[in-house]
Design a protein around this nucleic acid. Structure first.
Lengths: 229, 229
DNA sequence: CGAGGACTTGATCGTATTCAATATTAGTGG
DNA sequence: CCACTAATATTGAATACGATCAAGTCCTCG
């Protein structure tokens, strides 16, 4: 995991929390997933939580008719799969977009970490709180905005998150999401996304092609996004 | 608050938690809001959290252009306004739809409760987790479904929540939301909502008029909703 | 009974979808 | 390294779902 991303992680072995390390917590916990592979799927009873250490992954839900909604694009440092009650079915799927490295935590491991350091509970609450806010914000844009604003919001949000992870957003960035991934995240079709992308490109706001992303006008992008940043 | 709703509340004075009661926590904490009045508004620094004890309220966000997205319809027992960091601005507004009675908690009050009973932290996490799941589910429907499914989802979800609060959903239920409230919750216009309502009514699925709700065919309603219930 | 607001209905328009064809990229084996 | 193929993305044309504008109707409340 990029060192900048550590501050987003819930618990990072090898950092200042080192003294808390316990063998059991990390046993079998580091794992690699290839593009297209699943960490877990919606409906699974899956008593593990994960920190994404490297790579990009998408979290999504499916309607009964098969329609897919991407509810989160996971970046290094993101904490996934946590549930207060791990005997419940998980409510979303996680699929690797690029090669991903995850660090897994068992419920027992989490329990023992929490007992040793009460501040980790606060941290866990903060993470939930942030995810909550982010989801409401996305819902607002998906529910109310026009296609162009939705695209702008999606890209502006991702760019902001990448910047906080230490990337220079003035540069051309690696961007592994497909048209369909993006479209499913904002509730439009890939075909229409393509048309909107051309508009944004012609307006010299942002260019997003061939798995590369180049932001040309950040203020314009954020303004189009309609959301409060 | 209806006694059935207590099990949804985070902390209910007068219940088994009674011994925890502290004067400071409840000072000035019971308050009544008339329809249209605000508990707090998006952007406020508002260091209080609340349990809704009686009435209906809507939680919403606004885009920069003024568009409104209702992110939650609050019913008795719901816990609102909690933030891990109360110095941050709150990310949504809460407006009373009917006359509402709220029970308020100060950050200091919450802190002292948590210190006395660690299980309350678990409870708080559960609440956050539930809100999270609910938001993702709503996002999926708002992002992917057709208008008719959106309406069905919205009503099916509310009916389920009312039922868990002890109401008999076979009966005609009080339903104080306006067309606009519903429309803003699912991302369609009130005009179109009106047309869809007629369809659902003609199909003998659900009737929702004059602040009354009558579900005629629950299975059909849930099937239309497309979401996993 | 009258006035104002909320809701419904009708007609038209526009954004985004769908279907289909083309173009581009990435992947594979010669 | 270059065909050849499959997958992904773009473009075009037609359609449709939902939005908008406007008129009319139905409740509610004074």
């Amino acid at each position: 995991m990029d060192c900048e991303a550590r501050k987003f992680a819930w618990f990072e072995p090898g950092s200042a929390d080192e003294l808390l390390s316990q063998r059991q917590v990390y046993r079998n916990s580091q794992s690699i997933y290839e593009p297209g592979e699943y960490l877990f799927a919606e409906g699974d009873v899956h008593p593990m939580a994960y920190t994404l250490k490297e790579g990009w992954a998408i979290c999504y839900k499916q309607l009964l008719d098969g329609q897919r909604q991407v509810v989160h694009v996971a970046l290094p440092g993101d904490f996934l799969g946590y549930q207060t009650d791990f005997s419940e079915r998980i409510d979303y799927s996680v699929m690797a977009v690029t090669e991903c490295k995850f660090c897994g935590f068992t419920p027992a491991g989490i329990e023992s970490l929490l007992e040793k350091d009460l501040s980790l509970i606060k941290r866990l609450m903060e993470i939930q709180n942030k995810q909550n806010k982010s989801c409401k914000r996305t819902l607002s844009v998906v529910g109310q905005a026009q296609a162009k604003s939705k695209v702008a919001y999606f890209l502006a949000d991702l760019v902001e998150r990448l910047e906080r992870r230490g990337l220079d957003i003035e540069e051309t960035l690696a961007f592994p999401l497909s048209r369909e991934d993006i479209a499913d995240a904002i509730g439009i079709t890939p075909v229409h996304l393509s048309r909107v992308s051309v508009e944004l490109s012609n307006a010299h706001v942002v260019e997003c092609r061939h798995n590369k992303l180049k932001v040309m006008d950040i203020p314009a992008l954020q303004h189009l996004a309609e959301a409060v940043f």
